[in-house]
Design a binder for these strands. Structure first.
Length: 708
DNA sequence: AGCACGCCGACT
DNA sequence: GTCGGCGTGCTC
């Protein structure tokens, strides 16, 4: 009480102005708490913006970040800052700007975004423990160069051109290069040149999934040693804090991380690399739904005065980035030759209309796989559906195994002889008879990776390798890689040649550098070709290009074998124009065709979208809430330029007993959409508690949504 | 969102 | 007689 009174500027501010300072502090207040983003506290001395502090909030003590000084003194008496962590350098102005922009653009509370960007373990610390931690690790800035731990290889012409562009072009670089064209070497050398020029500089390298691309981390470590650190969600809380501190204190020169790393504190950031920039995992799907790739471009612009650059790399860029390059906002740098003389796989289409219905593996494809395995080569077979069969059904009455909590089928998993829901985790034993009619003939419908593995293993059972050992079929999907280290073991087994044929979901298509693969096959492709999601063709093309890139990586091996490197695709629509572009490995043609479709339909990137999502116990409550929301938008700024569609249930309406619905907003004018959203938010918060929306669980806005 | 305070059932 | 159910309400 005394402390609070002494802090009140009205009471003591005049009496002792030198020792009482008002500060705006950002604390983790969810937007709907009714509190503003910045709360005013007082302290004995002025603290620079970016200083971490602990402050009382209600009955709790929370970590906050000093954001500045209040424009006006608040009406309510202010409470004092409990402790200021002055041992830690303040978070830089650019970091605060990035966080502020992300909060504004994605319509989240500033405190939520700012505090979520810090390692959780930091919030557990106090000033004393922080002090000890900082003293215990007074790591000097390690000398990165010279000498580099590994001598870089000579550059190809394309790589030299790319590096020249990076150093001279003051725009985001779209590094467009096929798998194996040497993009990674460009990242490495761009980083090396930066560090040679400016020994204090830092680089940020973003990857979609760090566990699926261990060799990128290996290559950075081989070149830069201990100057590299990592930031991703698989780190333990202590590691994450340690790595974050290394970046914040400038001990780490290079941060390699997943999308969350875009918020790392990097005071000397001069280069951002976004590898596989088209990958949808750069878009966060919970909390603040940010795009790390888009924020990377923004962050580089914030640092432009200091010479910060951004490289977006991909063999199949997002249509957004491709269009930005077409329109001159990004600079496209094309690396068109595959290094080491490796040849591109030839496309072999299997027309499923010529095959018996329900064919999983057409005889010519199976024969091709057998022939390769017999010669000591390897094959990858892609099927984007895990489990044995996506559903089991009753022959007599048409009953299908449905999830009691979701509007989805229970998937038959033969490995544990159970039915499993892939959306809520519900599991059930396989019923002996149909629950509806008692019929005992229940049949699995459709195929998953387990069944494909089984069928291939049976087909290859009589084959032997050159050394007389039996041929081995392996499987890689979320089920087989759940256990710690299982993923690495399977990948190693493929590397070592212990596995001849690897079956799996799209995770087998990622950047693994398998040397003896000469055939890649996609056996169930058509679902994505005609999916209701209009981004599906783009993703399918990227997946098939990426999968194709796994084949023929070792030119010497391929030449010695005398094999043709092939990509097999089973489809009932072989005349689809996408396959013509795929056969020529012509992403530019595919992108041009897709962008033309988007332009005429007024779809992104020719318009901008946001989704308002609502979840409720009853679907009607969610829909009613969205209708109220639409009504509340009628007179908002920007409304004339923003199209609001009717609220609809989501494609997968119910998940874990919660009904989901959404409302799409679309505008050709991004600022109009942003203005509308910003003005809409307070009204949406005020919508709580309407009588026909009882059972509403939560709602959220997804700006630039990727999935519908 | 947390985390209080605040009024009604089965236990040491 | 207490421990605890989660219903409203507040957080500079």
């Amino acid at each position: 009480m005394v402390a609070e009174a002494s802090c009140d500027p009205v009471e003591t501010g005049d009496a002792n102005p030198a020792t009482e300072v008002l500060l705006d502090v950002v604390v983790p207040t969810p937007a709907h708490s009714g509190l503003g983003d910045r709360l005013t506290y007082c302290h004995t001395v002025a603290l620079p913006p970016g200083t971490l502090v602990r402050v009382p909030l209600g009955a709790r003590a929370v970590v906050g970040i000093v954001w500045g000084t209040p424009a006006t003194a608040p009406a309510t008496p202010v409470r004092p800052i409990s402790e200021a962590w002055q041992a830690l350098p303040p978070l830089a102005a650019e970091w605060r700007e990035l966080v502020g922009f992300a909060a504004r653009y994605y319509q989240r509370a500033l405190g939520e975004v700012a505090l979520a960007a810090l390692p959780p373990a930091l919030r557990e610390l106090d000033a004393a423990r922080l002090q000890r931690r900082l003293q215990r690790a007074p790591e000097p800035v390690p000398p990165v160069s010279p000498p580099p731990a590994e001598t870089p290889p000579p550059l190809t012409d394309a790589q030299a051109a790319a590096l020249a562009a990076i150093e001279t072009v003051d725009q985001p670089i779209l590094l467009f290069g096929a798998t194996g064209s040497g993009k990674t070497e460009v990242y490495l050398q761009a980083t090396a040149r930066l560090l040679a020029r400016d020994p204090q500089a830092q680089a940020l390298v973003l990857v979609p999934e760090i566990n699926l691309t261990p060799q990128l981390e290996q290559r950075f470590r081989a070149r830069f040693g201990d100057a590299v650190t990592t930031l991703h969600s698989r780190l333990t809380p202590a590691q994450r804090l340690q790595h974050w501190l290394a970046a914040h204190l400038g001990h780490a020169r290079i941060v390699l991380g997943t999308r969350m790393a875009i918020f790392a504190s990097l005071p000397q950031l001069r280069l951002i690399v976004v590898d596989e920039e088209h990958d949808p995992s750069y878009k966060s799907q919970e909390g603040a739904r940010y795009s790390a790739r888009d924020l990377a471009v923004y962050r580089a612009r914030l640092g432009a005065d200091a010479g910060c650059r951004v490289i977006l790399g991909s063999a199949t860029p997002s249509l957004e980035s491709w269009h930005a390059a077409d329109s001159g906002r990004y600079r496209r740098v094309h690396m068109d030759d595959r290094m080491g003389g490796a040849r591109w796989p030839r496309l072999r289409l299997v027309d499923l209309r010529q095959q018996p219905r329900g064919t999983l593996l057409a005889p010519p494809l199976q024969a091709a796989i057998e022939a390769r395995v017999a010669r000591g080569e390897q094959a990858l077979v892609l099927l984007n559906r895990r489990g044995y069969a996506p559903v089991i059904a009753c022959d007599a009455c048409g009953w299908k195994s449905g999830c009691p909590h979701c509007s989805a089928h229970l998937v038959f998993h033969k490995a544990d002889r159970r039915l499993r829901c892939h959306h809520c985790g519900h599991t059930a034993p396989i019923p002996r008879a149909c629950p509806d009619c008692g019929n005992v003939d229940l049949a699995p419908l459709g195929r998953g990776t387990e069944q494909l593995e089984e069928q291939l293993a049976a087909a290859l059972a009589t084959l032997q390798r050159a050394d007389g050992t039996p041929v081995r079929v392996g499987r890689l999907d979320a089920d087989t890689s759940r256990a710690r280290g299982a993923l690495e073991r399977t990948l190693q087994a493929v590397h070592d040649g212990a596995i001849d044929v690897l079956v799996g979901t799209q995770m087998i298509a990622k950047g693994h550098d398998f040397r003896r693969i000469t055939l890649v096959a996609s056996v169930n492709t058509d679902g994505a070709l005609f999916a209701s999601d209009w981004r599906a063709p783009e993703r399918l093309f990227a997946l098939l290009m990426q999968a194709a890139g796994r084949a023929g990586r070792d030119a010497a091996f391929v030449a010695a074998q005398g094999s043709a490197v092939e990509l097999w695709v089973q489809t009932a629509y072989p005349e689809h124009p996408m396959f013509a572009a795929l056969a020529r490995h012509d992403y530019a043609a595919f992108a041009a065709q897709q962008l033309e479709e988007r332009r005429s339909a007024g779809m992104p990137p020719f318009s901008h979208q946001a989704l308002l999502r609502a979840e409720a116990r009853q679907l009607e409550a969610a829909l009613a809430w969205l209708r109220h929301a639409a009504e509340a938008a009628h007179d908002l700024p920007g409304r004339a330029h923003v199209m609001l569609y009717a609220p609809v249930p989501m494609a997968l309406t119910r998940v874990a007993g919660i009904e989901r619905a959404q409302l799409l907003l679309e505008s050709p004018h991004r600022p109009a959409l942003q203005a509308l959203l910003a003005a809409w938010m307070p009204r949406l918060h005020a919508l709580r508690g309407l009588p026909d929306t009882r059972g509403l669980v939560r709602w959220a806005i997804d700006v630039d949504p990727l999935s519908f």
